[in-house]
């Protein structure tokens, strides 16, 4: 593996100053994305700043009902936290559906937000890939684009899905990302954090060079809501989503009073389906309502040669999830 300078940070400020506004540096959290990509020579940091000793491992309930998660809380610890499991079941379920026991033990909240695409052409180091080599083209558009390629939010420059399960649940819940950088602290709305590929697929997120994620703060849970994460994949465990849905609903009798819907496996970023939500609110919880909302969620979908099946599959992920939740 490519060698690098290594610094272990004891404080957030030290981490930010060790990293500097230099693009050739990388923060090391669980390492399950970073070291994987350094080993296969896709990421080549000259400086690695190890943030594992930072005091960012707590989950706190704030006075306003929100929940603040430290950047270094592991995926296992977050999924198992009692408050998360009861107030944000969708998040707990999404986390537990991702990766493997060992990987979840290492993977962190911020690392998961920052994970890179699983597109094989990005990872092979030789194919044309605008993300890896801006301007080189996108081998996936005419290539094998079945499992980790999107139908929503794609551009002629990149069609890779954002692979995270956790982020889909967070997109449904609503959240704020707090960052600390060379220019101080700021907050970013979770839904603005991941960028659409557009003309610049190499730009994946809203962080400025050197910024460190310190917390992800979840919006307060909807009163009397139920939520569920449904992940559809090629095998029953340990596989990225072909299509997934994170759904939160509140009901009065059989009327849906509020709904949140986000999708995974089908979009180039964790995909919040606002229009589908609008089609659910105030409606009776019937299959016809669910079908209509699911259709709306994929209204702007673009299928590619091998992934057109994701449109009906994604719609089914919405309908089945709502059916379970309102039964």
């Amino acid at each position: 593996m490519h060698n690098f300078d290594y610094a272990r940070a004891d404080s957030t400020r030290q981490a930010v100053s060790s990293h500097g506004p230099d693009k050739q540096a990388a923060y090391l959290a669980g390492g399950t994305t970073l070291l994987d990509l350094v080993k296969i020579d896709i990421m080549r940091p000259e400086q690695v700043v190890d943030i594992n000793r930072l005091d960012l491992k707590r989950i706190e309930t704030l006075n306003d009902g929100r929940t603040r998660i430290g950047a270094l809380v592991t995926n296992t610890a977050l999924a198992r936290d009692e408050r998360i499991a009861s107030d944000y079941a969708v998040l707990s379920e999404a986390l537990l559906s991702g990766a493997t026991t060992q990987l979840r033990n290492k993977a962190t909240t911020a690392g998961n937000v920052m994970q890179r695409v699983r597109c094989p052409y990005f990872r092979d180091g030789v194919s044309n890939c605008n993300k890896r080599e801006p301007g080189s083209g996108c081998a996936a558009i005419e290539g094998h684009n079945r499992s980790v390629h999107a139908v929503l939010g794609t551009s002629e420059h990149c069609i890779a899905t954002h692979p995270s399960d956790m982020c889909v649940a967070m997109a449904a819940i609503g959240a704020t990302i707090t960052v600390e950088g060379p220019e101080g602290q700021r907050e970013i709305d979770f839904l603005d954090f991941h960028l659409l590929p557009g003309d610049t697929p190499e730009r994946e997120h809203a962080l400025k060079p050197g910024e460190l994620i310190t917390h992800v703060t979840l919006d307060a849970p909807l009163d009397n809501s139920r939520s569920h994460y449904l992940k559809l994949r090629d095998r029953a465990s340990y596989q990225f989503a072909l299509a997934s849905s994170a759904v939160i609903v509140t009901l009065e009798g059989d009327t849906i009073t509020d709904a949140r819907v986000a999708l995974g496996g089908v979009g180039t970023r964790p995909w919040r389906a606002h229009e589908a939500e609008a089609a659910l609110k105030g409606q009776k919880a019937t299959e016809a309502t669910f079908q209509k909302a699911a259709g709306i969620a994929f209204k702007s979908a673009t299928p590619y040669a091998h992934n057109a099946f994701k449109i009906p599959l994604g719609q089914q992920a919405i309908v089945r999830n709502l059916t379970t939740l309102t039964a």
Binding site: R8, G31, T32, L35, V48, T101, L103, N105, K106
Partner: peptide, 14 residues
């Protein structure tokens, strides 16, 4: 805690 040691830097485990 069970982890994958292939994705772990030795220095991180000081």
């Amino acid at each position: 805690t069970a982890i994958n040691s292939c994705l772990s830097l030795a220095v991180s485990h000081d």
